[in-house]
Amino acid sequence: MGWRRLNHVLHRDIGYLCIGLTIIYAISGLVVNHTSHGFNPSYVIEKKTAEVTPLKTAGQPDAGYVAQVLKELGETAALKNVAMLSPDTMRIFVEGNTIDVHTGTGKVALEKVTRRPVLFEMNYLHLNKPKGLWTWLADIYAVALLLVALTGMLMIRGKTKWRGIILTGVGILGPILFLVVLL
């Protein structure tokens, strides 16, 4: 097998290996690029307000009042914890929901958090949250992409030689020009 044939086979087969992760990283890259104060790429965060019966007695609320608040809100998820943020603000943590209650007025602010299906998992991998073994797999993927690029460059020849040179040049000059203009 000549080196051109070997290069072609490497480019093709490494490319096949990269398809799965490229799709995951590309989709995740798109959503992570648009992370902002109003958009979390991994979670849907819904904020609502409501009102419940204010705490009638002075002092700190007890378990009975917490249960009453959850009942009035129709919240059935498992209770995780309760914390007093200030003398009159109680924060109730239930699975997937954070509930701030102003005990004096009964005003409530709810923050419901749910994972974005599939995107959560894609971002989990793309942002290398697992660390450890995934770091190695992601490194292998990065090297594989590099090989796809290098073997791709060696395929520039023949009738499409100039098209290859121009398109590759555009791809390389794009980020360089952007940096020159930006910096």
Partner: peptide
């Protein structure tokens, strides 16, 4: 390090 939203209340 990225703290997950589910950490709240834990």
């Amino acid at each position: 390090i990225v703290f997950p939203m589910e950490a709240k209340g834990k």
